[in-house]
Amino acid sequence: MEKTVNQKAWLLVLPVLVLVAFSAVIPLMTVVNYSVQDTFGNNKFFWAGLEWFDEMLHSERMWNALGRQLLFSAIILAIEVPLGILVALSMPKRGFWASVCLVLMALPLLIPWNVVGTIWQIFGRVDIGLLGYTLENLGIPYNYTQHLFAAWATVIVMDVWHWTSLVALLAYAGLQSIPDAYYQAAKIDQASRWSVFRYIELPKMQGVLMIAILLRFMDSFMIYTEPFVVTGGGPGNSTTFLSIDLVKMALGQFDLGPAAAFSIMYFLVILLICWVFYTVMTNLEKRDGVS
């Protein structure tokens, strides 16, 4: 759509600008403020320059959290994206069962995040949970509060349970936009199931899959509540991801300076990914034309 140039449109955007500035810019400036100052309490601050950034860049704790975070995001993407595509391909195309599938699949997405944690906490317990009880009786040692592997497995399966539907729903929306003529042409050419997927479905899903991957990466990168409820970051620090570590530092220990420096670096990473996301989105719209 051709857009008219009109500077007065700023007036329409103004309320959003004021509101978001209040809830985003002011807090962010506070963080910047803390990140360059030090305090001995009593609200007396003095200039510390880039000291905190320097400290955080050399802090093993932060690098470990970042490493765990990247590993976690990589694993869940590697599971959720193929699984989501598989599920989307298996969904009924239309009719009553398509609605049933859509509603049931969307259910985990609407559950408050700490309830997701609670569900898996209960589900995985050896004494009262179906999963833990079954595994225990099969002779597999499983205890997510003590074993590193069990804790990771639980957190990952929980995230797969929680968010695979998002990938599936987006992929499904992409599949729905493929005209029937494409499939008929493929049938005439006697294309195999694989080549239909490879040359028709996958290219058509490419755009939505990019969005799905970026959204999942972004949201898994700031995951907090679910692992916090299930494992509390443990055993040890083995499931302490970036957000959990940051909250521990800022609200638990009130280490304002390091926490603020940490926040800013965290935010810069997010900003970078966000920019990739935005570029992908706008390119997608240019390519498809305006919907």
């Binding site: 809830s23 985003a24 002011i26 807090p27 962010l28 506070t30 963080v31 972004m218 990168f221 700031m222 907090y224 970036l242 957000s243 959990i244 940051l246 909250v247 800022a250 609200l251 304002l256 926490a259 926040s263 965290y266 935010f267 997010i270 990914i273 966000c274 996301f277």
Partner: peptide, 12 residues
């Protein structure tokens, strides 16, 4: 896309 964890303390 901003992590709420970054904003928790300043909001408080």
């Amino acid at each position: 896309m901003a992590p709420p964890a970054v904003f928790a303390l300043p909001f408080f």
